[in-house]
Amino acid sequence: MSTLELENVSKQFGTMAALEPLALRIADGELVCLLGPSGSGKSTLLRIIGGFEMPTGGKVLIDGADVARTPPEKRPTAMVFQSHALWGHMTVEGNIGFGLKLRGLKKPEIAAKVDAALRLVGLAEYGKRHPAQLSGGQRQRVAIARCLVLEPKILLMDEPFASLDQHLRDRLREEVRQIQRKLGITTVFVTHGQDEALSIADRIAVMSMGRIEQVGTPAEIYTHPQTPFVAGFIGDMNMMKTTVQGGAALIGGVRFDAPMADGEALIAVRPEDVTLMPSRDGEGARVRRIVNYGAVLKIEAEAADGAVWKVQTLKDVPVTEGGFYRPTVSRHIVFRDDRVVHRVDPT
């Protein structure tokens, strides 16, 4: 049963601040995704938790004990690397049992634990093979087993499925989620894939430019983004600059409530929150492109003032390219100075 707390953790590489002082608390048994674009600092933060980078400042508390200056070999953490990082000269059993051997366990005990770990990841028959004889997915399972067999307090996963194809990635993601829940192990999972984060995480910490922009459940992050970056990074979003006058803003023929002082603002609308109603030619927005994704249609429509609407609708809604439609918006967020100042949410 382990918790992880980061207190004012920062990292400086020369003159460049890779991480601004940040704080994060991960509860026992929780799976938290660090999500962000390349260079956002998520891998640096994970490496700091794992001990592969020393923070410039701050504390890394595991069950209340500060391990910020403890080397990785002495931390109660285990990391699954993106590149598997298996040792090619050892068999699968050798890879998994290496850490146990270092801990001075006796051979029968090592064999039993290795066997259990292999069963857990579904590779019971593969112990005698070498990593070169395994597929990419199998190698990553071995890497996961190598970590789990040590029974770490915190499991760290650095984009573990990035090198796998989509189908395998989806399957392994589910398997990892099941194993994590079964063992109840506190896990930090780094990814730049929002789908991955949304589907696997208990909570997501969205990172940008070395800062944590927002921490929340996938639903919170998706429906209540706190900053324009989170709003734009997670899922599709219509992000439109506008000028508020008299408590409202007008974009593409749609009036948005914005009870705030007059001035510049940014309005965010999810494509699925836009509905297109047929209108007369020349009125509303003209549909310039429809992409059929099977269950849904993704539509681009351009209003007379140049505003472009991204719309997502069910496939049986009758919309035609070149047709004119009047957009209506059920939900929107108004940002000013990178903060939410107004939100219209019918739910």
């Binding site: 298996l86 040792w87 850490g99 270092l102 970590c147």
Partner: peptide, 18 residues
Amino acid sequence: ISNASIEAARDVGAGRLR
């Protein structure tokens, strides 16, 4: 030898000599 495989060894508890 990738840096990751060295780090993985450190991660499971191996010192420099090991």
